[in-house]
């Protein structure tokens, strides 16, 4: 079992090469930057739900914590201004701590009880961000945020290729970290807890500690995704950018990709986020160019069909591939 099995290597080779054929700007970059951000969140959720079997419906809250931590520590409207790289480091640490704090009292809960607690945590986080507007600027969002620097060189927002490769680099780092963890003592403990909590407890695996490590790892990755999401926009956006729908998207990525499969999560992010920011956008554009829309009839506007198409696609994918597009056994390694 190699650290990076063939499908994952192929993914990174293709992704790294793609921009060479795609010009230097355009919808492609917007879509793939979002795909990479959600790959990070998906990788985090895959550790929690895929490896350890804990249903987490509050990943968006950890993204929000990441985005706002990063913004408060780096934006020039606050006194800290620690810069992009230290901001990222601090975000990952605080993300892990937040995961620990939520996990400590609640990880004893079973299955769907934990799911609703995480969902509730998501709602609480949104309300707190909205209500404490003295600190978080309420629904205005915090902006602008710093760009990453490499020595004296700064990556500007327009340098789409640079951002693309930077984000891909973060995804690669996250994949390496997750794969390392998966093969470590903790990782084997995660899988055994998922398969049979009672038996693994009998074998001397501490369930609480094992779950906590998984939960903190997942939260840290989601926070990283959130920080990069904000950095990419140069704004945290409003708190509602991290609502329940985002948690649902993360869950769909992991399950559509294949629970417990790192390569699957990467593919899941391409499919789910790509559908959202590439396919649906293109469909609406084509329909608009073909002269559809503009009338007052609700059916005539292609934008009004987006939910329907998205929903149908979800149902079809799990119907045809109930174990996900790339389940762990096909990934060539884990499982």
């Amino acid at each position: 079992m190699r650290l990076l099995p063939t499908p994952i290597l192929a993914y990174f080779a293709i992704m790294a090469a793609l921009p060479l054929f795609m010009g230097t700007s355009g919808l492609f970059y917007d879509a793939f930057q979002a795909i990479f951000v959600f790959s990070l969140v998906g990788l985090g959720l895959n550790v929690v739900t895929g490896f350890t079997g804990l249903l987490n419906l509050g990943m968006a809250a950890f993204m929000a914590i990441g985005a706002y931590t990063f913004a408060i520590l780096t934006s020039d409207i606050y006194p800290f201004q620690i810069g992009f790289w230290w901001g990222i480091v601090a975000t990952v640490v605080i993300g892990a701590v937040a995961g620990f704090l939520l996990g400590a009292p609640t990880l004893g809960l079973s299955g769907d009880y934990l799911a609703i607690v995480t969902m509730g945590f998501g709602e609480i986080t949104l309300d707190v961000l909205k209500n404490l507007d003295a600190v978080t600027k309420g629904t205005q969002g915090i902006n602008p945020l710093p760009r990453p620097t490499f020595g004296s060189w700064t990556l500007e927002l327009q340098q789409e290729r640079g951002w693309y490769w930077l984000l891909l680099g973060f995804v690669l780092l996250a994949v390496l970290a997750v794969r390392r963890l998966e093969r470590s003592r903790s990782g084997r403990a995660w899988l055994s807890i998922r398969e049979d909590a009672l038996a693994s407890q009998c074998m001397g695996i501490p369930p609480k500690r094992t779950k906590m490590i998984a939960f903190s790892t997942g939260s840290a990755l989601a926070a990283l995704g959130g920080a990069l999401f904000a950095a990419l926009l140069s704004s945290t956006g409003e708190p509602a950018s991290y609502d329940f729908q985002v948690s649902i998207l993360a869950l769909c990525i992991v399950i559509v990709g294949g629970m417990g499969s790192v390569a699957g999560t990467l593919v899941g992010a391409v499919v789910m986020v790509g559908m959202n920011s590439l396919v649906l956008v293109k469909l609406a554009d084509w329909a608009g160019a073909a002269g559809v829309g503009g009338a007052s009839n609700v059916l005539a506007s292609p934008n009004n069909w987006k939910y329907l198409i998205f929903g149908l696609a979800l149902i079809l994918v799990v119907r045809l591939k109930p174990d996900g597009l790339l389940p762990p056994r096909l990934e060539g390694g884990s499982g």
Partner: peptide, 21 residues
């Protein structure tokens, strides 16, 4: 459109995409 079906409302990512486009 600067909204997305997931959000059901304006979406910062989509607005950024539109501006770029």
């Amino acid at each position: 459109d600067d909204a997305s079906p997931q959000r059901g409302n304006w979406d910062p990512t989509v607005e950024a995409q539109n501006a770029n486009k």
